[in-house]
Design a binder for these strands. Structure first.
Length: 485
RNA sequence: GUCCCCAUCGUCUAGCUUGGUUUAGGACUCCAGAUUUUCGAUCUGGUAGCAGGGGUUCAAAUCCCCUUGGGGACACCA
């Protein structure tokens, strides 16, 4: 019998959830669900200077939006809580004192200023900048002296000079580190709050985490943590380090090279399903290079850590756009309409008393055109505005041409008493005029579109006219006809 | 500077584990054509890649080494 898989996502609430964090969370989630295990959420809020309540809320909210529901953690509870590290301080302390007692850790009285100074000198002198173990072998007298002076102290781990530490990484394979390169790192700060490297190990052990799936930036922390597992007598979990997501400049994703915050994508109107689909393909793929999945369930079914690739991936928003467009097309018109409404309201395009059926038809006309939900406001604004704006170039090239006025007048006159006013009837009237005047279809269609929408691009003219209705259609045609006189 | 990781079209990737079945496959983007009343969508086609150099082997994108390039880590941040 095998033990149940337990994985965790352990964000530090120092900012909103970003793309990289979301990808890490997603892979943990996919792995947990695939293995029928548990997905734990733990908040690592030990950085008191930068952690905020807002960031916690943002992270929880973003994960929910993506549909990455956790089995244990904030808002959920669980048998291994608390799930905020600041509520677990006593636990860390007792383990630290245990290490102290066993001589595997020691008090260090060096001040941050001294340390910084020494590091500067080291760098200038060209030798390793790590901690020089000054307090490692303080005599009881020396220690008593420092204590009397009331010096602040941290607890440091006593690293070994000998041997190598080997990681058998789930995605990278064997990785080795020389122990001598590891400095005596801090376990407990002078404030009594543990550092990430320590709290992380304690919690993962206490929470029975079986697989640690995290970003590549933690690979070099792993040997230190393995040493801790050994010192504490904990059994080792499996590690899997995911390659990073880079910006188009091949550097760590930053605001300069693209949006990093999940909020941005949410506001733009990317669908969570599309984002999940896209993110899952950043560093993972099926042997068929499948692009689109029918559901998260399908991704879960096909997901495996063995298929996770080692090389970093560059975030390509163009592909995301395409994918989001695909997901928008899959949506039922009822749901798309519901999703798009907030965007229209925000731009004051929608008052709220519009006919629901009419609105759905408007949305349907734009469904295959929009790549993000927010684009509805740029593409369909003329349906809602009482005064539309005209694209200058369109007016110049399409409207201000010989004979346009005559054609528009002819069309308007036929439309005035047309009954009923439908896609079919407005088109057949148009076709008749085109035949009578012996002109090309475009000669009527293009100027009419500019007159009605202010633009040269948009949905099919007759569909759009039927939705605009006779009154608005005639009004807008009149306006242009008068202008052309 | 030290340590670690990575390396197939511009991008995401399949192929690499178990060398020959590969004229290196798919997708996004881009270009062309078809369709259409425009844009889009759709369909068809196209451009474009094994970083370089050494080995090993009858045979290397696939195995080994070096170089180069990129990334990450070296905090009382995570």
């Amino acid at each position: 019998m095998t033990t149940k898989v337990r994985v965790r996502f352990a964000p530090s609430p120092t900012g909103n959830l970003h793309i990289g964090g979301a990808r890490t969370a997603l892979f943990n989630y996919l792995f947990a669900r695939h293995e029928k295990g548990n997905f734990v959420l733990r908040i690592e809020d030990t950085d008191r200077a930068r952690s905020t309540k807002e960031a916690v809320e943002n992270i929880l909210d973003s994960l929910r939006w993506l549909g990455l529901d956790w089995d244990e953690g904030p808002g959920k509870g669980g048998d291994f809580g608390p799930y905020y590290q600041m509520e677990r301080l006593e636990t860390y302390k007792s383990y630290a004192h245990e290490l102290l007692k066993q001589g595997k850790a020691y008090f260090c009285y060096c001040s941050p200023e001294e340390l910084a100074e020494r590091k500067k000198e080291a760098l200038q002198g060209g030798y390793p900048p790590g901690y020089n173990r000054k307090c490692r072998n303080l005599s009881p007298e020396e220690r008593a002296e420092k204590e009397r002076e009331g010096k602040e102290k941290v607890i440091r781990f006593r690293t070994s000079d000998a041997g190598t530490t080997e990681i058998n990484d789930l995605v990278r394979g064997k990785v080795q580190f020389e122990n001598i390169l590891l400095e005596d790192f801090v376990l407990i700060r002078s404030s009594g709050i543990p550092t990430f490297i320590f709290a992380n190990v304690i919690d993962d052990n206490l929470m029975n985490i079986t697989h640690i799936i995290r970003g590549d930036e933690h690979l070099s922390n792993t040997p230190r943590q393995i040493l801790l597992y050994q010192a504490l007598g904990f059994s080792l979990p499996s590690f899997g380090h995911l390659s990073m997501i880079l910006g188009s400049d091949r550097k760590k994703l930053s605001k300069r090279t693209g949006a990093t915050s999940l909020d941005w994508y949410r506001q733009k109107g990317y669908l969570p399903q599309a984002l999940v689909n896209y993110l899952s393909l950043l560093g993972w793929g099926t042997s068929e290079s499948q692009e689109l999945f029918s559901s998260v369930e399908e991704i879960i079914r096909k997901f495996s850590l063995e298929a996770v690739s080692k090389n970093p991936a560059i975030f390509d928003i163009q592909k995301l756009d395409w994918m989001n467009g695909q997901y928008i097309k899959r949506l039922g018109i009822e749901e798309l309409t519901r999703l798009v409404e907030p965007y229209l309201k925000e731009k004051n395009l929608l008052r709220g008393d519009e006919d629901k059926e009419w609105l759905k038809k408007v949305v349907a006309l734009e469904q295959e055109r929009i790549k993000t939900l927010s684009q509805i406001t740029e593409y369909a604004d003329f349906f809602f505005l009482s005064e539309i704006t005209y694209d200058e170039k369109a007016v110049r090239k399409v409207l201000r041409k010989e004979g346009v006025s005559r054609i528009l007048i002819a069309y308007r006159d036929k439309l005035k008493d047309l009954e009923p006013f439908t896609v079919e009837t407005v088109e057949s009237v148009a076709r008749k005029i085109i035949a009578d005047l012996e002109i090309k279809g475009g000669a009527l269609i293009h100027p009419t579109r500019v007159a009605l929408t202010g633009r040269t691009v948009g949905p099919g003219l007759f569909e759009l006219m039927a939705l605009l209705g006779r009154e608005v259609t005639i009004k807008r045609l009149d306006k242009i006809i008068n202008m052309l006189d």
